[in-house]
Each structure stands twice: as C-alpha cells, then as structure tokens.
C-alpha cells in the first residue's frame, strides 16, 4: 500500500525541492556577454588541432561562485622533478632530510607507482586532461590519467581527527575570494611526487590554490609541508589550460601494462636519458 504523505512532510519536501531548484539556478553559468567569434584551434600539450578557449574573463555562476568547470590540461608543478626551480615559487627550494635524499638516489624506474598503474597523488600531473565538478557540498576532480580515478573535496568541511592514510588523503575546500583553497591531510606514504622519486611521509599536508585567471587558464599553486621528509615547506607553481573541445576518455592503465617488466635503471624523467 502506498504510504500517504502527511502535511508537514509534504511541506518539507516542497521546500527542499525549491531550495534545490534555486541552487541549481544559482549554479547555472551566466550566458557569455558576446558570442565567441571564429573558433581557433591549436596544439594543447600532446594534442594537435584542438579547439582553443576564446579570450574572455573567468566565468562565475549566478550566485558569484567562480566556475571552474571544464576539462583542463596541466598540473600544479613539475611531474619530471618537483624540485625544478622553474616550477617552484620564486626563492623556494626543496630541502630533503638525509633519509629522503638517500632514497631518491636508489629508487628504480620500475618501482614508480605511476609505472605500476597506481595513483600519481598530488600535485603530480599527467599528459591527460581532468575535470572539476562543483556541487553544493562536494567538489570532484575527475582524472583521465592518474589511474582514471577521482578526488572528492568536502566544501567547508572538517578533517577527521585521525584519518585513515589514503593515496589522495582527506580534502576540504573553501573559497578565498576567487581562489579555491583545498587543504589535504591523511595521505599514505606511497605515491612519488615525480618521476625522479621524491618521497613523502604520512605527515604530508598539502594546500592547493586554484585560481581561474581568465576563461581559458587556471593558475595552480601547491604548498607541500612534510616535516617527515623535508626540512621546510615549499610551494610549487603550475597552470592548466582549458580544453573546450574535449571530453574525458577512458584510461584503464591496468589492462595491458606490458612496460613494467621492461623498465630498467634508476628513476628519471619521462624523456630523460
């Protein structure tokens, strides 16, 4: 038998529906002031003949929240070598504790979690795009690469007192002006920051700052604080470019990883000799 909806419950449901609708309306992007003129194409990363974003300001939702949605290509630092000064905040250096220096000297290419189709963690990028999805309570980062996984960011949330260590940790987010700030703790110690093998421990704490500087560009800064492996925090800088003409494609790295047994020698950059 169908259960009748009592009056109070009906009112509550109607209010919830109205609230949801108003949120969705608020999150609807405002239409562009002028329609884009002739679409430009060019190379983005490895991809040729790609639709390029037209010039224009960073969009916002109707409620004023910056709109970061879209497929992006890029990352918050150098995936070849996180200590590369070109990808560090001006004046910052990466200073490892002795055990960390030693482990970098001995790591082998085939030990890299990335080569084993395991997560690349934060902020290590890949040559594949990723997408940000914003909802009222959660933001999601959907990765095409980085083992085709996802991260969830709890907006205005709190970290648990004793989070279980995980590959992507526990992330909470908030807005500082037009910058999305993502604070993450609770990492395991397994992923490598880069192809070179820079390590971290479970004490790792990252703060990511995402700022859409215009329609087609995202600035990314990541502060890395891990007193278990580094003598001081450092901040990496990177950027991402919008790929308006692409959708994420499947990338199931585990299905035919024939490379692993053939990898030889020390950990090194993707194209390094």
């Amino acid at each position: 038998m169908k259960r009748p909806i009592n009056k109070n419950r009906g009112i509550a449901l109607a209010c919830a529906a109205l609230l949801s609708m108003s949120y969705l309306l608020a999150q609807t992007p405002a239409p562009p002031a002028t329609a884009p003129t002739t679409a430009k194409t060019g190379t983005i990363g490895l991809y040729r003949n790609q639709l390029l974003a037209p010039d224009g300001p960073a969009p916002k939702f109707a409620d004023g929240t910056p709109d970061l949605s879209g497929a992006w290509l890029g990352s918050g630092g150098s995936d070849a070598d996180i200590s590369n000064p070109k990808s560090l905040k001006l004046g910052d250096t990466v200073s490892m504790l002795p055990w960390a220096e030693e482990i970098v000297k001995h790591r082998q290419s085939k030990e890299d979690p990335e080569a084993n189709c395991l997560p690349a963690g934060i902020p290590r990028g890949s040559p594949y795009p990723w997408r940000i999805v914003q909802t009222p309570t959660h933001y999601f980062i959907l990765y095409e690469g980085n083992i085709h996984s996802y991260r969830q960011i709890f907006m205005n949330g709190k970290h648990p007192d004793d989070p279980d260590p995980t590959w992507y940790g526990h992330s909470i987010g908030h807005w500082e002006g037009n910058t999305l700030v993502v604070d993450t703790v609770g990492f395991n110690d397994k992923f490598w920051f880069d192809y070179k093998g820079h390590p971290h421990t479970e004490k790792l704490h990252t703060i990511e700052r995402y700022t859409r500087t215009d329609l087609g560009h995202l600035s990314i800064e990541v502060t890395i604080d891990d007193p278990g492996a580094y003598t001081k925090p450092f901040t990496t800088v990177g950027k991402a470019v919008l790929m308006p003409g692409t959708e994420l494609l499947e990338y199931i790295c585990q299905e035919n990883n024939q490379d692993l047994p053939l990898l030889t020698g020390p950990a090194r950059g993707p194209g390094a000799q």
């Binding site: 085939k110 080569a115 890949s126 090194r268 950059g269 993707p270 194209g271």
Partner: peptide
C-alpha cells in the same frame, strides 16, 4: 629527448634511442 613522451613511465628506462 630521444624518447617519446610517455605518461606512466620513463621512456628512456624502456627504450634505447
């Protein structure tokens, strides 16, 4: 670089250019 751009491993660790 002598090696193609590979996403998930070092190209130089696998191939001899």
């Amino acid at each position: 670089t002598g090696s193609p751009a590979l996403a998930h491993h070092s190209g130089a660790a696998e191939f001899d250019s």
